[in-house]
Amino acid sequence: MRGSLGHDREWHLQARCRGLPSAVFFTDDHHRGRRRVDHENNAKRICASCPVLSRCLEYALDAQEPYGIWGGMAPRERAALVHVNRGGRSSA
């Protein structure tokens, strides 16, 4: 169930990113173009083998994380996912 923001963070103890510098998963404003893509792809490679990938993505979507790679997705990818999911829901 969603909505457990901040309450169930035990999944983070099993994350592949645990102990790595946060800079691996967050780009600064100076990263543009190929440099940004390479930086993001490096983070995504770490995420790809993470045992809690889906839980991390769920957290990022719940928290509406605007920055960084979470659950193997960049902010623009998460925004697109939310947009697609909202587009398929009924308002009733």
Rank of each mutant, 00 (worst) to 15 (best):
Q14M: 11
S54D: 15
D8A: 02
E40H: 03
R32E: 14
I69L: 12
Y67A: 11
H7D: 06
D62E: 15
R9Q: 06
S49T: 15
H12Y: 04
R34H: 15
Q14P: 00
D28T: 11
P66Y: 15
A43H: 00
A15M: 04
G87A: 05
G33I: 07
L13K: 14
N42T: 11
P66L: 13
S49R: 14
R18T: 15
S22P: 01
A92T: 09
Y59V: 00
S4G: 11
R55C: 06
R9G: 01
E77P: 09
L5D: 08
R89M: 02
G88W: 08
H30E: 14
R34P: 06
P75L: 10
D8Q: 10
H7Q: 10
V52I: 08
D38L: 14
D38V: 03
G71K: 09
D28K: 10
R78A: 02
G87L: 09
L5R: 13
E65Q: 14
H30P: 00
D29Y: 12
G72S: 10
A48P: 00
E40P: 00
V82K: 04
S49C: 00
R9K: 05
E58N: 09
S54N: 06
L53G: 02
S4C: 07
L5T: 05
D29H: 13
G33K: 06
W70Q: 03
F26V: 08
L20N: 03
L61N: 05
W70I: 09
K44S: 04
F25G: 05
G87E: 07
F26Q: 06
V52N: 02
G72N: 04
V82L: 08
S22V: 08
D8C: 01
H39W: 06
R9H: 08
G3K: 06
E40Q: 12
C56S: 03
V37E: 11
P66A: 15
H12R: 13
A15D: 05
H31K: 15
G6L: 03
A74M: 05
Q64P: 11
H7Y: 06
K44L: 12
L20H: 13
R32Q: 12
S4I: 08
R2E: 12
M1I: 00
G3V: 08
L13R: 14
C50W: 00
D38I: 09
Q64N: 15
L13N: 07
L13S: 04
